[in-house]
Amino acid sequence: MFEPASRVMHTWYVPYKWSFGQRATEFLELMKKEQKIFFGRCTSCKKVMIPTAICGKCFAPLEDELVPVKDEGVLECFTVVYLPFPTQPAAPPYAYGYIRLDGTSSIMPHIIEEVDYDDLRVGMRVKAVWREELEGDIYDIKYFKPID
């Protein structure tokens, strides 16, 4: 009867306001104030983890005070992203991995730079490279870079 329309196009735009909660807020405030990474310690098993999570093993709260941890550690796993798509943190190619900071039991995700991507290895030691001006944001650490 009529040439049918084959598509209905629409862009769905939903703005959000995400609450960080007390621990994650402190994590970022301390990052800005002290230029250090502060993690949370489980009151039960005493393991130290990124303060956005609760200890999955113990189901116990984190201690009230966050503890400072070294801003260097081991690259547990990594990938070099070549495929472009929206919402990426950087334009491909970029390297991104999970870092186990010394003395901690959870991982910190971050970008890896100042390295030839062909040289990346699981088990490399990496260290945070901080921004000049700190704002209390995860990208106050620009990226992690390999160290000997």
Binding site: T52, Q88, P89
Partner: peptide
């Protein structure tokens, strides 16, 4: 990915 930290870094399933 959780929106506070992880989503600022990772994106998509292949990674």
């Amino acid at each position: 990915y959780e929106p506070l930290i992880a989503r600022r870094m990772g994106a998509g399933a292949p990674s």
